[in-house]
Design a protein around this nucleic acid. Sequence first.
DNA 1: GCTGGCACTCGCATGGGTGGAGTGCCAGGC
DNA 2: GCCTGGCACTCCACCCATGCGAGTGCCAGC
Lengths: 338, 338
Amino acid sequence: MLSERRLQVLRAIVQDYVGTEEPVGSKALTERHNLGVSPATVRNDMAALEDEGYIAQPHTSAGRIPTDKGYRLFVDKLAGVKPMTAPERRAIQNFLEGAVDLDDVVARTVRLLAQLTRQVAVVQYPSLTRSTVRHVELLSLAPARVMLVLITDTGRVEQRMVDCPAPFGEASLADLRARLNSRVAGRRFTDVPKLVEDLPDAFEPEDRGTVSTVLSTLLETLVEENEERLMIGGTANLTRFGHDFPLTIRPVLEALEEQVVLLKLLGEAKDPGVTVRIGHENAHEGLNSTSVVSVGYGSGGEAVAKLGVVGPTRMDYPGTMGAVRAVARYVGQILAES
Amino acid sequence: MLSERRLQVLRAIVQDYVGTEEPVGSKALTERHNLGVSPATVRNDMAALEDEGYIAQPHTSAGRIPTDKGYRLFVDKLAGVKPMTAPERRAIQNFLEGAVDLDDVVARTVRLLAQLTRQVAVVQYPSLTRSTVRHVELLSLAPARVMLVLITDTGRVEQRMVDCPAPFGEASLADLRARLNSRVAGRRFTDVPKLVEDLPDAFEPEDRGTVSTVLSTLLETLVEENEERLMIGGTANLTRFGHDFPLTIRPVLEALEEQVVLLKLLGEAKDPGVTVRIGHENAHEGLNSTSVVSVGYGSGGEAVAKLGVVGPTRMDYPGTMGAVRAVARYVGQILAES
DNA sequence: GCTGGCACTCGCATGGGTGGAGTGCCAGGC
DNA sequence: GCCTGGCACTCCACCCATGCGAGTGCCAGC
C-alpha cells in the first residue's frame, strides 16, 4: 500500500503532466506543490511509484509521466468529478434548449461537448431497443406497397418500405393501423413481438400474408441493432494531441469512423455513473493511447443511450467527467420535455 | 499562348508531382517522359511556365511544383476524366445495392467515395427544397398537440411537433390530413405555399387557428434550408496529406465540421458536370490548400443534391473526377429505384 | 526517514561541413 | 531561331561533434 504522501506525489505528477504535456521532474514538483519535503525525498517516492508501475520515464534522465495504471489510480482514488460552474450550467441549458428536433438535439449536444472538453465528442442516438413505441403509421403508396413509419417516445422516426405479397385495401390498412397502435403504443420495443403475435388471425385469409409481412418488417426495424447511429464532432481537437502527429492521430480517426467500434465501446460501459476507460483498457488498438469518458443518458430515470468524449490519456479527468455528466443530465431533461 | 510542348511539360510536372509529392526537376522529367528534348530545353520551358505563373519553386535550386493556376490549366485542358474500369463499376453497384433506407444509401456512398478516392468524402442528403412531397401525416399526441411527419419522394422523413392554440378533434385532424394530401402529394416543395394558402377557410372558425399553425410549421419545414444535412467520411485519409502536419490538417478538419461552409461550397458548384475548385478558388480559408471535386446527383434527370470529395491540391484529378462521377450516377439509379 | 550533495546519464539544440540536386546562362551546332 | 551540352552557382538536407541542462540515483549525515 502506498503512503499518503506518495499518493499526493502521484496526484501532483498527473496534474502537472496534464497541464504541461512534459515529463515532470522532482524539483519542479516540489516548487509547484508544497509537499513539505525536499526533491530528494520526492525522488525516492517516485522511484517507488515507478516500481509499482504507476509512472514511467520516457528515457533515462528525463522526468516521469503517468502510466495507464497511474491514471487509473488517479481517477479512482485521487480525483473527484469537478462540477460545472453556474454560468457553465446556464450556457449548457441555453444552448440545448434551442433545439427543434431530435437530430438537432444530438447535433447540438455533440458541438457542446466538443467545445466544453476541447476533445472529440461522441453522442449515440437514443437507442431503439430500450425505448417505447409512440405510434406506428402505415401509408399506402401503391396497391401492393406500404410505407411503415415508426415513431418512438424519444421522437425518433424510422421508415421502411414494405412490398406486400398481395394487394391490400385502404380499409384493411386502416384496420391494421388501428389494431396495431392500440396494442403497441406506449409499450417497450422488447414487448412488441409477443403483443402482435396473433394479430394476423384477426384478418381475412387473403390479407394475412400482407399483415405478416408488415409485422415482420416492424419487428426487424425494432431489433435492428446495427441501426444504432452516432454523431461525432470536434475531431479538429485531435490536432492538439501531441507533436508526433500522423502516427497518433491516424488510428484514432480510423477508429472513430468505424461506428461499430465506437458503439461497442460505449456499450461496454455498464456503470450507472460516468465511466472512464484509459489507454489500453480500450479494446480497440487504435484507441490505446486515448481515454474514453462516457455516461448513459435518457429521458426518464433510465438510460436509453450513451454519450462521451475521446481524448488523449493525458486529459483533465475531473473536468471532462464533470462536463460529460452535466451535459448528459441536461440532454435527459430536454428529451423528457419534448 | 503556350506551345504544345510546354503544355506537355506542365502535364508531366503535374503527373510526377502528384505521384511523388516532391518537386520535380528537369532531368527527372526527361527521364520519365519521353519529351524528345534535352533537360536544358525543358529548363527553358519551365522558366517560361514559371513566368506565366503555372509552376513555382519552393526555394531556389529546387524542382518545380504546380501552382493553383497550373492545376487549373491541367484540369481544364490537359486531362480528361478517367472512366472507372468494369470491375470497379460492378463493385460500386454491388456496394450500393445493399442499402436498406436513405440513411444507409448516404452512409454507404460516403464510405465508398472515401475508399475509392482515398480522400475525404462529403455527401449531401437529398435536398428538401428541390424534391416533391410524397405524403404528409398528422398524428394526434394530445388534445392540443400534433406531430407532423413529412415524407419526400427521396424517402426522407422530417418530423415536427406542433402545439395547437386550441384542442383539435380526431375528425378535424383526419379532414385536414385528407385535404392536405390531396393538394400537396406529388407536388414540388416550392409550389406548396400557394396550394395550401386558402385551406384554413374550409374549416370551422374555431379550428382555423390550429390549421394555420400546422400549415406554417409545414412551410417552415419545407424551406428550412439549414436543415440540409451532410455526411462526411474518410477523414483519416487526411493524414496522408503532407509532412507539415498539424498546420495543414487542422483548418481542414475545422472547415469540415462547419457544415454551413461545406454546404455553401457544394452549393456554389453550378456546373451540370463535375466541378473542380482548386486551392484558393475555395472561398473558405481553411480549404485554401485543398481541392474540392463535386457533382450533383439525383433520382431523375435532375440533381437534388451534391456529393464530392475534399483532398490536397496535389490529387489525382482524372481519377478522382471519374470516381465522383461514377458514384453519383449509381446513387442516382439507386434513388430512382426505391 | 528526510536531506543535501555529487557524479552520471542522456536528450536536445547548436553549428559547421559536405554532398547532391537543380538551376540559369552561355556559346556552339543544326 | 531553337535546341543542346557544359559549367558555375545556389541552397537544402543530412551528418556529426560539441556543449548544456535537466533530471536521476545513490550515499553519507542528521
